[in-house]
Design a binder for these strands. Structure first.
Length: 409
RNA sequence: CGGAGUGUAGUGAAUCGGUAUCACGCUUCGUUCGGGACGAAGAGACACCGGGUUCAAUUCCCGGCACUCCGACCA
């Protein structure tokens, strides 16, 4: 991509209403544009990041047997009446058509996925099933905030699984927890598996994947010595108490953002929809169901909150909008060749080909945008290419082959 | 939904009763050219919306709306 063709420009100063880091930097660097509170457009750079996070999530969900589908966000009222969600779920956006029929915008998709899977599952031999989608969710939050971290419209991966036995469910439940941790690891994040309430529709506890950040909106208690971690809202222990699990360290309190969760839904929804199948003993049973959410757009916000400095964003290589940021300082012919050769080698390049701005501007924009590797081609670099990593101060002069080798590592 | 703050060119700010100023950005020309260059000439604003007070309102008052922050809420 040539920088001169990008339709968005970076801003010298962030908009004054942007307060949190992700809101400020993502807007200033032209990754997103706010339409209203909690609702954003994703611009070329931002969309690339979102797609990369999506892809990592997709790969890990596929790895545990999830099948990707795409369900509507526009739901009939009936399905929500069936589960009592129409009156109980207060974040549900409700719509009315011209002829007074009522609809909901999906805040979650149990109401759609349960009857959907029911159509094809008739026997225990058709189980288990795990389907997921990566799609927009709508929630009528009274107060959206923190940039893209708490939107009224946000991108989420939601998987739903259906099982014959509790043991079978437990297996996927455990596998999904591991898959989630792998996702966060690939994003460069450390998530704490946190015990939390299961919400209105299940007595069981759920697990939340919490990432420490002041921009979050949950308080957790965790042990620095073992993996014990609990959401403060259901905690029976308090800050400073000895860890109930390892009995060693004292519990610490921290602010965190919920980047994902997994729920054991039991038979709540399969009973609501009267979803039965024939078990191996010939009886009719309700499948056991689980749901697994992961906030894709929220994770993008968390990444910016965690990885930045006073010059801008510092993307982990796994989700950076491009692999390299190539800058030409009045050397477009030479740089153009490097640009083409890198692209031929499968490297994603943002090529700053602007002739009419100073090098200082180009460097400042590169730092702001936060691509992990910056390459400079100029009179000064001669036949070589200057290599600089976003996280480092030093630069080095390398040949094209050396650059390519380092990038392919 | 309670509380607080803020609404003035694309962005950030000034003016605080006499219809708007500056910086950055944008256009054109020239000089520059490795950490946000310089000069010159331009374009760009119903001062959030509605009402009131006044000879006169961006400015004061009332009512909306929007955004941000704190809290509550977040099946």
């Amino acid at each position: 991509m040539k920088y001169s063709k990008l339709f968005v420009k970076t801003l010298r100063t962030p908009p004054k209403d942007a307060d949190t880091i992700n809101h400020k930097l993502l807007t200033q660097a032209g990754f997103v544009d706010q339409l209203m509170a909690g609702v954003y457009s994703y611009l070329p750079l931002g969309l690339r990041v979102l797609k990369k996070i999506e892809q990592i999530v997709r790969e890990e969900m596929n790895a545990i047997g999830g099948q990707e589908i795409l369900m509507p966000v526009f739901h009939p009222k009936d399905n929500w009446e069936t589960t009592k969600g129409w009156d109980k779920v207060d974040v549900l956006f409700k719509l009315k058509s011209r002829n007074e029929k009522e609809y909901a915008l999906g805040s979650s998709e149990e109401e759609v996925v349960t009857p959907l899977v029911m159509k094809s599952v008739k026997s225990y031999q058709d189980l288990p099933q795990a389907v997921y989608q990566i799609h927009w969710k709508f929630r009528d939050e009274l107060r959206s905030k923190s940039g893209i971290m708490r939107g009224r419209e946000f991108l989420m991966k939601d998987m739903y699984s259906f099982h014959d036995t509790q043991e079978d469910f437990d297996k996927l439940y455990e596998a999904s927890k591991k898959a989630y941790l792998k996702v966060y690891e690939r994003l460069g994040l450390v998530a704490k598996v946190t015990e939390a309430s299961g919400g209105d529709f299940t007595e069981k506890i759920s697990y939340e994947f919490m990432i420490l950040t002041d921009a979050g909106e949950d308080d957790i208690l965790y042990c620095s010595d073992c993996d014990f971690c609990v959401n403060l809202e259901i905690a029976k222990v308090k800050e400073g108490d000895k860890c109930p699990k390892c009995k060693k360290a004292a519990l610490q309190k921290a602010r965190a953002s919920e980047a994902g969760n997994v729920f054991d839904l039991g038979q709540k929804y399969t009973k609501d929809f009267n979803f039965t199948y024939m078990a191996s003993d010939g009886s009719q049973k309700y499948p056991i169901m689980g749901c697994y959410g992961l906030g894709v757009s929220r994770v993008m916000g968390i990444l910016v909150e965690k990885f930045n400095d006073d010059r801008g964003i510092i993307w982990p290589a796994s989700v950076a909008p491009f692999d390299v940021h190539l800058i030409s300082i009045k050397s477009n012919d030479k740089a153009e060749e490097v640009y083409k050769k890198l692209q031929d080698a499968g490297i994603e390049v943002l090529f700053d080909d602007r002739e009419d701005v100073s090098a200082g501007n180009q460097f400042a924009d590169a730092d702001l945008i936060g691509i992990p590797v910056r390459l400079v081609v100029s009179a000064k670099s001669g036949d070589k290419i200057e290599w600089k990593e976003r996280t480092k101060k030093e630069t080095e002069l390398l040949s094209f082959d050396e650059v390519l080798k380092k990038l392919q590592n």
